[in-house]
């Protein structure tokens, strides 16, 4: 049992070390600054600029968070402060189902619904678009990360003591003032943390995004451009060109970037929720 525990505990470390070792070949031949900020991606010419992929990933993730965070926050507030108790009981399985739907199913729904939708609304913003865009990826992702963010937020708001609410109400504050000035403030470490976890999930999500985001190696200028996020890059190319060792190593470096970013946001989120109890 102890061995199993140790195995589980060392797993992230092993993966991290493995990725690092695999990417040393690339790192030995290129400066890390160059890799992260160079715009040219021509593996056959030994040009490995990750910049377009990193920017795509950031765009998709931010779009998803900007859509999902306010929706989740308002939903959590409604469920815990306004709705009847049984409603929350109904919501829990719904959230679990949302979380359990396989990624590829979200991808299919995205292709069938979101992509045509984005394609139709694009002209409103003066653009022609196939619909395979950053925005589509962001919308699909926002639905996928909703259950994770929502679950944490509901827990946070439920754990705020009634007495704090009563204190504010007894000062003559209305319910909305109490929510706005007291509850949200009290919940703010939790809100930050839930968004951090949302980011780390969104950043690494592969399948569903890959299916709707266009996969064009170009730096996206707005949400209606196609993009090519890091996970999609790895999933699409790994296994194909392993004959070129440097390419193999480059994809591993891509995975390492993902690993570090996701780890970073995970740790930050956990720290905020435990350490950042400022008030």
């Amino acid at each position: 049992m102890l061995a199993c525990l140790l195995l589980v505990m060392t797993m992230p470390l092993l993966i991290g070390i493995g990725l690092f070792l695999k990417s040393t070949l690339l790192l030995d031949n290129n400066s890390i600054i160059n890799l992260l900020f160079s715009k040219t991606w021509k593996p056959l010419n030994q040009n490995f600029g990750f910049y377009p992929f990193i920017i795509s990933s950031i765009w998709v993730t931010l779009t998803a968070i900007i859509i999902a965070a306010p929706i989740c926050l308002l939903t959590a507030i409604y469920l815990t402060q306004y709705s009847k108790k049984y409603f929350l009981k109904i919501m829990h399985p719904v959230i679990d189902i949302l979380a359990g739907i396989p990624s590829v199913v979200y991808g299919v729904c995205g292709v069938l619904i979101i992509v045509p939708f984005v394609s139709t609304i694009a002209p409103i913003f003066g653009k022609q678009s196939s619909g395979y865009t950053i925005l589509s990826g962001g919308i699909v992702l926002s639905i996928m990360i909703t259950p994770f963010i929502l679950n944490i937020l509901i827990e946070i708001f439920r754990n705020i003591p009634d007495e704090l609410k009563e204190a504010s109400l007894s000062l003559g504050a209305t319910k909305w003032e109490t929510i706005k000035f007291v509850l949200i403030k009290k919940a703010s470490p939790g809100i930050i943390s839930s968004i951090g976890l949302g980011i780390s999930r969104a950043f690494g999500e592969t399948m569903a995004v890959l299916m709707v985001v266009g996969n064009v190696t170009k730096i996206p200028k707005n949400a209606l451009d196609p993009g090519y996020p890091l996970p999609a890059l790895i999933a699409n190319n790994y296994g194909e060109m392993l004959s070129i060792p440097m390419y193999d190593s480059a994809l591993m470096f891509g995975a390492l970037i993902l690993f570090v970013v996701v780890l970073f946001f995970n740790i930050i989120s956990r720290l905020t929720i435990t350490k950042l109890e400022i008030y």
């Binding site: 007495e163 403030k185 009290k186």
Partner: peptide, 9 residues
């Protein structure tokens, strides 16, 4: 109240 509940400010 029984326990002090200062507002989060």
């Amino acid at each position: 109240s029984q326990m002090p509940y200062p507002l989060p400010m």
